[in-house]
Amino acid sequence: MIQKKVCLIGTSAVGKTSLIARFVSSIFQDKYLTTVGVKIDKKNVVVEGREMTLVIWDLAGDDDFQRLNLSYLRGSGGLLFVADGTRQITLDQVLEIQSRVVGAVGSLPCLLALNKADLKACWEIADEKITDLRAAGWRVLSTSAKLGTGVEEAFGELGRLMLPPIT
């Protein structure tokens, strides 16, 4: 079976752990609980008719208190960058992190999840900004770990991007 390592990257409190909990266990917890270090989960998925195990690394948010250890990304097949749609600053931060990540591990299949779509009325990230990101080559998806919206799609799309060609 194909096995791929996926890392979730973003600053703190954007919902990385919640996205994984929704995807792997179909659960959501409203209270913010910070992640310390790394936690790894696995999930088997079928992508375009092929079975794949996603080994999902939940990395603590990169911020002033904890920096992302780039060696954790070694061997990744794909990256899911996450920002909180209700906080523009988290998008600026994840784009800064992404430039560090590319410098360290090169270009990998990746997606940008703008999380907290359930709070769309409070979003600070404007549609024009999303259009600009897409124009710059980003695959951007709107997700809600709370409602489950876009979560399967995000991991499914990343799975498709990581799928090795049939030989």
């Binding site: 703190s12 409190a13 913010y32 609980l33 910070t34 310390v36 948010g61 911020d63 002033d64 208190f65 904890q66």
Partner: peptide
């Protein structure tokens, strides 16, 4: 960390 990040939020 929890307290610090809550304060940032």
């Amino acid at each position: 960390l929890q307290k610090s990040r809550e304060n940032v939020l």
